[in-house]
Design a binder for these strands. Structure first.
Lengths: 218, 218
DNA sequence: GCCTCCCGGATTGCGTCCAGTCTCGGAATT
DNA sequence: AATTCCGAGACTGGACGCAATCCGGGAGGC
């Protein structure tokens, strides 16, 4: 928290880390479609790296469940299995419930303020119909809420599961009604969090998640 | 589920996969001590593989939180941070709670029988004071319970967190009293599961986990 | 005497090479 | 005509080599 933190540490991230980030973004965002074969050479050229770091990135993404490694036949972007998605949502629900509980008990005032600000940004994005920005702020809110739990293991676990869910959300197109409903749900969630009403927050998060699942599967 | 499953599929696992398994075992079991530096060449020689697959294995273990990668300075076995352990237990609690609920609702009779058998084996191990076997059966019971939830995502998430916790349990030495208490707790857990009493099971699992944490930290 | 600087050894990160495996298209056979 | 067999091409898995980086020790300066 001192000055050493302030100065931008000369970030020389390993190439494989950078590659994981880029590929994950492209997969989540759908620019690499589910089922698409991933040609090592091609991606190497695109990313400007050699095969070694790319292969390391593949292994990590496979562990996250974003791609599948077929022995001797390369990698492909994992398909979105509705069944698996349901299972993911169930686990996410348990994690969010825990996060909500912890957050209500231990969140700092600043955390709550941060969520409020993100919420305002999200409302603005909704107002101007900016779906991409909405998604982004929406994700940020949920993540911030989980972070407010003060449990880094929870955050890490949540993040990992979230990647696959985000992917599904990018695929599904959000109806105007569902969008409006989601905004109302978020209003309530914010209120419950600000009031540190854990029980209510848990109920709301659960309902929100269920609606999200329905929307994605629909 | 047909004959094709029965014949042993010529297992030609990639080397990195094999390496991950071996290293994980050694780390969890403590033969690679927390904080120990991992020399690539040395491990290559020990495992009889070259650096490429080993490095891939390192990346995966790092993602699991079992080792830490220091840029340009190699890898070391992650230290057991009591704080982090507490966080892990909190998440595991949420996962076990969900698992218990689902398992009570959806477990097959065979799953329950399987747990019963494992429990009997564990009792036997306890009776003859075989700590290693006890640990093994204990783990198997918990895992089987989670698997009985029928949620593969939950299983995978649980497994991953569990690796670190198992490590801590190997480190801490179990007192005779705690061991006896754990056996009693397991009796109750089994009874609740067999009766499909979700609420009671959840309470018991929670208490069991809390006691485990206290034992490990003590 | 202590601090700083610099150099050598060791080790990592990445690029590249080789061998084994798989895929796909064409030819030969039934 | 359909099927099987076979070989060329492409690609992955693993091994290895080189340059860059880091650590420790010793010389030199304050």
């Amino acid at each position: 928290m001192d000055a050493a933190q302030a100065i931008e540490p000369i970030q020389r991230r390993p190439l494989h880390e950078e590659a994981v980030g880029r590929l994950r973004d492209r997969i989540v965002q759908g620019s690499l479609a589910p089922g698409a074969r991933l040609n090592e050479r091609l991606l190497c050229a695109q990313l400007g790296i050699s095969r070694t770091p790319l292969r390391e990135a593949f292994k990590l993404l496979a562990a996250e469940g974003l791609i599948e490694l077929l022995p001797n036949r390369g990698a492909m972007v994992a398909r979105l299995d509705p069944e698996r998605l349901k299972h993911s949502f169930a686990v996410m629900g348990a994690l969010e419930a825990l996060a909500g509980e912890l957050a209500c008990a231990r969140a700092s005032a600043e955390s709550i303020d941060a969520v409020k600000r993100l919420h305002a940004d999200m409302v603005a994005a909704h107002a101007r119909g900016d779906l991409a920005a909405y998604f982004s702020f929406n994700q940020a809110i949920h993540l911030k809420l989980v972070e407010a739990s003060g449990n880094p293991v929870l955050v890490q676990t949540y993040r990992q599961l979230n990647a696959n869910v985000r992917r599904a959300r990018y695929m599904a197109n959000l109806s105007a009604e569902r969008w409006d409903a989601a905004m109302r749900e978020h209003e309530e969630i914010l209120a419950a969090f600000a009031a540190r009403d854990a029980a209510r927050l848990k109920r709301l998060l659960d309902a929100h998640l269920a609606a999200k699942l329905a929307s994605v599967l629909g």
